[in-house]
Design a protein around this nucleic acid. Sequence first.
DNA 1: GGCAACATTAGACTATACTTCATACTTCAT
DNA 2: ATGAAGTATGAAGTATAGTCTAATGTTGCC
Lengths: 121, 121
Amino acid sequence: MLLINQLSKQTSIPIHTIRFYEKTGLFQGKKNPEKKSNNYNYYDEETIEKLELIGAAKMIGFTLAEIKELIEVWYSKQISKKDKIEILNQKAASIDEKIKQLKQVKKQIDLFIKEVEEFDC
Amino acid sequence: MLLINQLSKQTSIPIHTIRFYEKTGLFQGKKNPEKKSNNYNYYDEETIEKLELIGAAKMIGFTLAEIKELIEVWYSKQISKKDKIEILNQKAASIDEKIKQLKQVKKQIDLFIKEVEEFDC
DNA sequence: GGCAACATTAGACTATACTTCATACTTCAT
DNA sequence: ATGAAGTATGAAGTATAGTCTAATGTTGCC
């Protein structure tokens, strides 16, 4: 179990940002019941996974609200198999859509580069 | 030449947003020198193009600052061919990078869907 | 000439995602 | 035991990207 400082170092995510994510409900640290003198939060390996997922999902344009939903599906034991698969398929589809859009714009930029190379002398 | 209302209708971008983009420096309307009684802004076809570019670039996660740079390259007559190509290549590379990341996450989600389908009964 | 529909500006307000600050407590090395 | 470093909490501040309001002026049509 890691303290927030270690967690930050292992994920390269600033402490303040981690706290912000925690407050947003993306995950929760656990208090140590044996140590009642402090109320430090302890984080498990799953939290590292979650932070990595957050990083990846953010990079591709998901909002924290969407990521929260994704995490809930990913780790929930309560959500039915059917619902899980549906939400995951939705996310997968939205990623495909984004890839399509990116390729479209890439093509346009490549064309424009050619244009510049040939005519704009 | 279009007034802002027409521009908004043709691009499906709200008037307020168009004004915001203009204030941000993504493009500029022109005053009509023959009509000195008002100071309405008139927009040309190029502005429609630019707004479409903004829409596409935003969709793939470019910030307005990046888009501004892209538009400046796209339409500037002052920037050298070499610089234009360099900036465009940078944007193209960042799109490739994003596509790579998206594919990565897509793969992870697909794997997880399989996992859920097989084991989480 | 009067009224609806459109235009402009400045400024206030919102949401998202942080980021910093202030205060106060805890742990650890010397 | 004391000071540096780490932790918690709440609240304020920042940046980006809008979105809305108010006050005021303009145009077009009956």
